[in-house]
């Protein structure tokens, strides 16, 4: 399979017939988990992830006593792929969660200052949990997209005497931007948007770029065990900004 991917690439083709700069079909479903404060299911091709948001009351961090807290966590459920094993989170899971976190946080899309209940004492803590349900490549873009959509439909629970009333809500979570993550793989001299599982296996380096609505870049992460060239970085950033616009249109 590896050599087949490479052979086709030499002719400028991909194994699933896509153009190099083409995403697979993206399917977004909202509010897929009623118990969650917000949720989304995202499929990119056959890659499938669910993100669910829960809100809890927590003590704020001492350096931001009047701001809510965002925590992103990812789990590669062992049912999603033969490579995934049960157990504590591995480095790939941790990296994915941290890259998704940075994209959301650095875009400043959540108005965390509106999540203060009692300064210095109580704030809302927003947990985004990502479950990977089918791994056919590019988990990062799918996870970032599912997290964004879930956050955008998240409702803040009602409070009574400082306690959360489950199932009743006081309003929406304020999410004012749509940061979009675009991952681009380098295979030989080709740059491929949204690499699938087979392509990822022969990927030399991958760059993930999170782009905000105003085309500002809010996070970058290089992955993969080979190097990347300066002129490739420029091309990747331009391509990511362009593709982010396309994906953003899919988000309500």
């Amino acid at each position: 399979m590896d050599s087949y991917v490479l052979e086709l690439l030499e002719k400028g083709k991909r194994i699933d017939g896509r153009r190099l700069d083409e995403f697979r079909k993206i399917e977004i479903r909202e509010n897929v988990v009623e118990k969650a404060e917000g949720s989304a299911s995202v499929k990119i091709g056959e890659t499938h992830v669910i993100a669910g948001v829960k809100a809890e009351i927590a003590q704020p961090f001492p350096d931001s006593p009047d701001e809510g807290i965002l925590i992103v966590n990812a789990e590669f459920t062992p049912l999603a792929s033969p490579e995934f094993e049960p157990g504590p989170p591995g480095e790939d899971e941790i990296e994915l969660a941290r890259v998704v976190d940075r994209g959301i946080r650095e875009s400043k899309c959540i108005e965390l200052e509106k999540l203060c209940i009692q300064p210095g004492e109580k704030v809302w803590c927003i947990f985004v949990d990502i479950s990977v349900l089918n791994h056919q490549g590019n988990l990062l873009d799918a996870s970032a997209l599912a997290s964004l959509v879930a956050l955008r439909n998240t409702r803040i629970p009602k409070l009574e005497d400082g306690k959360i009333i489950r199932g009743e809500y006081q309003g929406k979570l304020p999410v004012i931007f749509k940061p979009i993550n675009v991952s681009i793989a380098k295979i030989r001299e080709n740059l491929l948007v949204d690499p699938n599982f087979e392509e990822e296996k022969v990927t030399e380096a991958k760059i993930s770029v999170a782009v905000r609505d105003d085309d500002k870049i809010c996070a970058i992460q290089k992955q993969g065990s080979k190097e990347i060239l300066f002129e490739e970085i420029d091309k990747i950033i331009d391509l990511a900004v362009e593709k982010s616009k396309e994906i953003r249109k899919l988000v309500k």
């Binding site: 650095e106 500002k216 996070a219 060239l229």
Partner: peptide, 27 residues
């Protein structure tokens, strides 16, 4: 991080808001 003798980048991580131009300058 890079291999300066080869002109190849091996580590690139960024967070915060930048324009494309600023990013270029940073690199």
């Amino acid at each position: 991080a890079m291999m300066p003798g080869k002109g190849k980048i091996t580590l690139l991580q960024m967070d915060g808001l930048v324009t494309k131009e600023e990013l270029k300058k940073l690199i």
